[in-house]
């Protein structure tokens, strides 16, 4: 499922307890070429819908009934626990790095976006596509928070401005190709920057994009 055949439309399930947003998200996805095959109001219903099959990607609010706490993440963790590898995009009204990390920790094919990104159709659709292919997405706002964390002088301060931009793009879940597109750099250049960054920060460069994102986020999250 993670490799949707090009040409076939993605089938998505949307979970949000606010009807207005649920329908809005559905509309944005539909306009972006994604079929919304299930639209539910809680995490449990979403899990049930996914287990029923025929769904490639799920878009779900974090805060839903019954407790309005972290039902979205719980649903994600429950899906991953049962072996599902579908793409899951979490939406939240708040940009919380700790949540983003917890979400990504659950496994590859996971994204965390601010809810207001639904007003940027291509961002939302791109994120849905990325996670459905096993990629990772982290909201720029979250990454910005992590990058701007006050910290004691460390390896981060030895990074050049360009390297910082590359690091930020890495943290958002971009692959090297994605970074080269975002920063208008050649892929080779990006690879060099990435190698330098990982070396300076003392991180293992992993060919697995998901693991790279996790490592970078963990580095930024720690002090």
């Amino acid at each position: 499922m993670t490799d949707a055949t090009p040409g076939t439309r993605l089938r998505a399930a949307v979970a949000d307890d606010a009807m207005l947003l649920r329908e809005g998200i559905g509309k944005v996805l539909a306009d972006g070429g994604v079929d919304v095959v299930a639209s539910v109001g809680s995490g449990e219903e979403l899990v049930a819908a996914v287990e029923a099959g025929g769904i490639d990607v799920a878009v779900l609010d974090i805060r839903m009934p019954p407790k309005f706490r972290d039902e979205g993440i719980v649903a994600l963790e429950s899906l991953r626990a049962s072996g599902s590898k579908i793409g899951v995009l979490l939406l939240s009204m708040y940009a919380t790095p700790e949540y983003a990390m917890r979400a990504l920790d659950a496994g590859a094919g996971t994204g965390y976006l601010l809810k207001e990104r639904v007003s940027e159709p291509h961002t939302l659709v791109a994120a849905v596509t990325t996670v459905s292919r096993g990629g990772s997405v982290v909201d720029p706002e979250v990454v910005a928070q992590l990058m701007n964390r006050p910290r004691a002088d460390g390896p981060l301060s030895t990074l050049t401005a360009r390297e910082l931009s590359v690091l930020e793009a890495m943290a958002q879940g971009n692959s090297n190709a994605g970074i080269s597109r975002q920063l208008f750099l050649g892929v080779k250049t990006v690879e060099t920057h990435v190698r330098n960054i990982m070396q300076k920060l003392g991180l293992d460069d992993s060919p697995d994009n998901h693991r790279r994102v996790l490592a970078v986020l963990a580095y930024l999250g720690s002090r």
Partner: peptide
């Protein structure tokens, strides 16, 4: 909300991350 959703284990680091003094 991070407090409600994630408890102190999440909320305190988040809080500290906003403090200008490295914590």
């Amino acid at each position: 909300t991070v407090l409600v959703e994630g408890g102190l284990a999440l909320a305190l680091p988040e809080l500290a991350s906003r403090c200008p003094v490295p914590t």
